[in-house]
Design a protein around this nucleic acid. Structure first.
Lengths: 99, 99
DNA sequence: TTGATTGTTTGAAACATTTCTAACTATAAA
DNA sequence: TTTATAGTTAGAAATGTTTCAAACAATCAA
């Protein structure tokens, strides 16, 4: 079973998926950056700060979206990513602040 | 590079390794159980509560030890596992309490 | 000593993850 | 319309992870 596929069936599973997401350097950096800036960021803007291929970035953002850590919004040809701070804080209070 | 091999070179990497450890169901359960009981537990005792093969348990405990989440003590032919609560709390305060 | 118990190790199989290239879609600008 | 820009997707290669069976070592008990 793929940890990032299919809906989380329990709070425990959701927590484990958050941990999975944060165990990879690129995703860890994305989440921390989104938390620190405190508002949504464009994919390109994120890519300027994190040195990975745009398709790899896309893959990681999809993973974060599937797990439920971020939501995205498309405007024109740009895409903006927002952190689901509340949802993460609800199950793992204080975690984001200590990244 | 294997995330659980070689010393953590930074606090961030240590945090990521903790997340890696907790992303797997068996290890998550082991860590939560050790935290809740508040004292060391025997491998066999752990194995009674978690339905996995003893060799798989051994593998997970080695992973937890290599990352630095637990320490072990051998007495006779039994082995006791203790959670490094302080070390985890130092980098991710409150995490253990919210597992 | 013999046999049971406790846990480790090795090696292989099965499976999951990450990364890249190349092709692609959609929007915007010239 | 043509071209550039932003991001996605598919497929493949490389790598990492998990699990189990079988063999092993060490301790304890009869």
């Amino acid at each position: 079973m793929d940890i990032k596929q299919s809906a989380a069936t329990s709070t425990e599973e959701f927590k484990r998926r958050i941990f999975f997401a944060l165990s990879e350097p690129g995703r860890y950096t994305i989440v921390r950056m989104l938390y620190r800036v405190g508002h949504e960021m464009g994919c390109g803007e994120l890519n300027q700060h994190i040195e990975i291929d745009k398709s790899t970035m896309s893959y990681h953002l999809r993973t974060l979206r599937e797990i439920g850590l971020v939501t995205t919004r498309t405007q024109g040809r740009e895409k903006f990513v927002q952190l689901n701070t509340d949802r993460i804080d609800a199950v793992l209070p204080g975690l984001l602040a200590s990244l």
